[in-house]
């Protein structure tokens, strides 16, 4: 077999990388804030019958329970029918953000719930309000516990960002996968282009994995979230 790689592909693939990274960074950042709020509401927002808890739960179940692709097309094709015009980049960003917020809400809920209940009790016994206890005692611990599942989500979203290729038609709105498909559809070098693209994704994932491991080590505290080490 005769594989042909053309360096002329690289500038366009580079642009695609940039767009994929942008999409992922924005959606993960905004998604983390939304997810934290949703997660907190699911834990502290009153009982099962409080409207706040109910709304947060409905949101999480809806966005985890339907495919991201359906959400993207619903936004991209649906919003214009009610008079809201939205470009492919924003549609992609919106879909990915809404989707990852639901998943991150569950990671936050899990992390918050794995902080021992005595921590909240000790904070309240000192005279802290519930908000202070959450801010100074619960969240600093939950944020450390959330790093491993959050890394997973980050990697998922980087790869899922390829779905915006479904809606991007112009080259400047294409993500890495969209660019690759557009290059390959002209020169029919599908195999080579996709191998290259796979390597690009792999490299990005490895860099993120190493970076987050480093962060995890930097903020590690003895006795928090690292049971069984050295036993």
């Amino acid at each position: 077999m005769n594989l042909v790689f053309d360096p002329a592909w690289l500038p366009r693939l580079g642009q695609g990388v940039l767009l994929s990274v942008q999409l992922t960074a924005y959606c993960m950042g905004i998604g983390a804030v939304l997810g934290a709020v949703l997660g907190l509401v699911r834990v502290y927002g009153g009982g099962r019958w409080s409207p706040l808890y109910w709304a947060a739960s409905a949101y999480v179940h809806f966005f985890r329970g339907t495919p991201l692709l359906v959400q993207l097309l619903g936004i991209y094709l649906g919003l214009p029918t009610v008079g809201i015009l939205i470009g492919p980049f924003l549609a992609g960003l919106l879909a990915m953000t809404l989707n990852t917020a639901a998943y991150q809400a569950e990671y936050f809920r899990g992390a918050i719930q794995s902080v021992k209940s005595g921590q909240m009790m000790a904070a309240r016994a000192l005279g802290m309000s519930r908000g202070q206890a959450i801010g100074h005692v619960i969240m600093p611990q939950a944020l450390r516990l959330i790093i491993p599942p959050w890394s997973n989500e980050l990697i998922y979203m980087l790869k899922y960002s390829s779905i915006v290729s479904m809606t991007a038609l112009r080259p400047e709105t294409m993500d890495l996968f969209g660019v690759a498909r557009s290059i390959a559809s002209r020169n029919f070098r599908y195999f080579e282009v996709y191998i290259l693209v796979a390597l690009f994704y792999l490299a990005m994932v490895l860099i993120l994995t190493v970076a987050l491991r480093w962060v995890e080590r930097r903020v590690r505290i003895p006795g928090l979230g690292t049971p069984g080490r050295g036993i």
């Binding site: 005595g118 921590q119 009790m121 000790a122 904070a123 016994a125 005692v137 505290i221 006795g223 928090l224």
Partner: peptide, 9 residues
């Protein structure tokens, strides 16, 4: 408290 409940972090 019986089990101290010092803030772990």
């Amino acid at each position: 408290f019986q089990d101290f409940n010092l803030f772990t972090h």
